[in-house]
Nucleic acid binder design. Structure first.
Lengths: 349, 349
DNA sequence: ATGAAAGCGCTAACAT
DNA sequence: ATGTTAGCGCTTTCAT
């Protein structure tokens, strides 16, 4: 066996995990029973000051840390919550949206007893991540950016309390909790602004249309054009990446009859589009006005600085966490939380 | 109690975690003992084809997933390994180094049974993360970017097998495993190139000097200048951020007598420095030659494209994982693995 | 306030 | 090849 026996483990060099102190040893040293130590661990209620003190000293002296597997098994809770990102690593790190979400989550979690476990679960063979979550390793899960398969989502949802970032892509949404940004309205705000500024030939670069964020923003765009009685301009898919945005822009230009304004469904894609326009000598905003979406850090990195729709990602992370924490505390928070997007006018439109 | 009893849990709506199927129920349904089910779970050795089949069917029918807490408790392994990043969220996402490291780790781990758990452990009150790791929730840990406190590292190191990315900042390094890039040599390579190109007044922007990456690169820089008999140029600290790089550049310029070349200890800082130089109308590389460090994606985003020292981050993640996996398999991999850096000549020098 | 006893769900000898 | 028997380290009734 590769696992040292209890006693042997102790002697071993620090290079292997030494087998840890148990509650039993603490109890012995403190001269009390396991139960009393357990009570101290649980907050020290119904423990005499004397016992409390000697247990605490024993814990400190032995550098005791409770075994969490044993604890979870007995108490049926882990004090861990998972953030599942069904994206590949590159996308996860490349998109500032995730940074904001994580910041929001951690902000809320740091004042709680729960610990955040992050899982980057892209093409995870054998569903190691799913089984880990279903296996009872976390008390709840937050799932973002899911164009993932239904079975994947539903299996997790069935096993542990879940809160989604964005609307979950499942057939029957009843019973699902989520925090979404009003992307349809966001698309409307951007497009309306363009229309009000007098633009008449307005094109769009969309996100993946199999994702609600993608199709919702496009929906808002179309709504406004229709209300304004304008013909729907060209729409090309940009896949939420810089490269995709540039490629979509190129296709729009290649189609001839260039637009005088452009609604791009993410800042990253807007960056790609802007780069291409500038390379071709097309001026922004003079020749083509540009409105992005997200208000991510790149928006202000660009020159000219990007006019965009602010998406409250940190707040979304916070709200997701609040909802999950409420559920774990046995409360009944609203199933749907919708956050508002708003226009940030800068220099590209 | 906030936890449903076993039976009640079953009836509850899917909004709470339903209590899971146990091995006992699977055994009953398959008409075998717990042990046989356990054997099937463990790979199906020493199980008759008949039993194997009926157990597998029972598992599928009941949608059974083993409880991992129980499993870990009994088997003393979790099949999870932690990646601990003692940095704040912004830094973690902002620095492409981490993206590469994670890519490397995941690449190696995906073909193993181990699952990667990511912990962004900055100022973690009460050491939730540390206690989680020490509590036996993972079989091993990878720790990167640690200007963290000694006690923090040592406590984890004492409890589970750890492999560090970079040299661990502890008094006594014996017993520690790590994978490092030869940063001293990297600093030398960059500086030597600048000297060979005929530059004589060479300045540097350093990383934090309390981090080995920071002090090592500076060391290499100084070595070469000394060997070449050149006076050490100005050295300013840039903290590994874009803003820090710009600020350091400004200080160097403010000191008067501008350098004709610059070694910047990270690409992100080089970006800040380059931006400032360009804003001041100083041409790169004509007026000041610039060599960065990391060869991160920003290197090729810049105009002119950055000459830099390639740091094999993905390989570092891979090597760290290989070493940890070897240790977990009971082997004795080398304690120190040193990866070589190399110069990538582009347009700034 | 404290201890004794009974599990939590699983794996791992040990028999057979 | 399979079942039986002990635990793994902890929490949680239930007595006292």
């Amino acid at each position: 066996m590769e696992h040292p026996r209890t006693t042997a483990g102790r002697q071993e060099s620090a290079s292997r995990g030494a087998s840890a102190t148990t509650i039993e040893e603490v109890a012995a040293r403190a001269g009390v029973s396991r139960s009393t130590v357990s009570r101290v661990l649980g907050g020290g209620d119904r423990v005499s000051p004397t016992a409390l003190e000697s247990v605490q000293r024993a814990i400190a002296e032995l550098d005791y840390v409770p075994n969490r597997a044993a604890r979870s098994l007995a108490s049926r809770q882990t004090l861990a919550i998972a953030l599942v990102v069904p994206e590949d690593t590159t996308r996860f790190f490349g998109d500032p949206f995730f940074a904001s979400i994580v910041t929001g989550i951690n902000g809320r979690l740091s004042s709680s007893d729960y610990l955040l476990n992050l899982f980057i679960a892209s093409g995870d063979p054998g569903d190691k991540t799913t089984n880990y979550l279903i296996g009872g390793n976390v008390d709840g899960a937050l799932i973002v950016s899911h164009h993932a398969s239904n079975t994947f989502l539903e299996r997790i949802h069935r096993a542990v309390p879940v809160v989604f970032g964005g609307r979950p892509l499942v057939a029957d949404q009843s019973g699902y909790y989520f925090v979404d940004v009003d992307n349809v309205e966001g698309g409307r705000i951007a497009t309306r602004y363009l229309v009000e500024r007098g633009h008449r030939r307005i094109a769009t670069i969309t996100g993946p249309l199999d994702m609600p964020v993608g199709s919702d923003r496009l929906q808002g765009f179309r709504d406004v054009l229709q209300e304004a009685g304008l013909a729907p301009g060209p729409a090309e898919n940009g896949d939420f990446t810089v490269e995709g945005g540039a490629a979509a822009m190129a296709r729009i230009l290649a189609a001839g009859d260039p637009p005088d304004a452009l609604f791009v469904a993410s800042d990253l894609m807007a960056r790609g589009a802007l780069g291409l326009l500038q390379a071709r000598g097309i001026r922004v905003p003079e020749d083509i006005a540009l409105v992005g979406f997200d208000d991510s850090p790149v928006a202000t990195d660009l020159a000219p600085r990007l006019t965009t729709v602010h998406q409250p990602s940190r707040e979304q992370g916070e709200a997701m966490t609040d909802v999950l924490l409420a559920r774990l505390a046995g409360q009944r928070p609203p199933q749907a939380t919708i956050l508002q997007a708003e226009l940030v006018i800068r220099e590209t439109a």
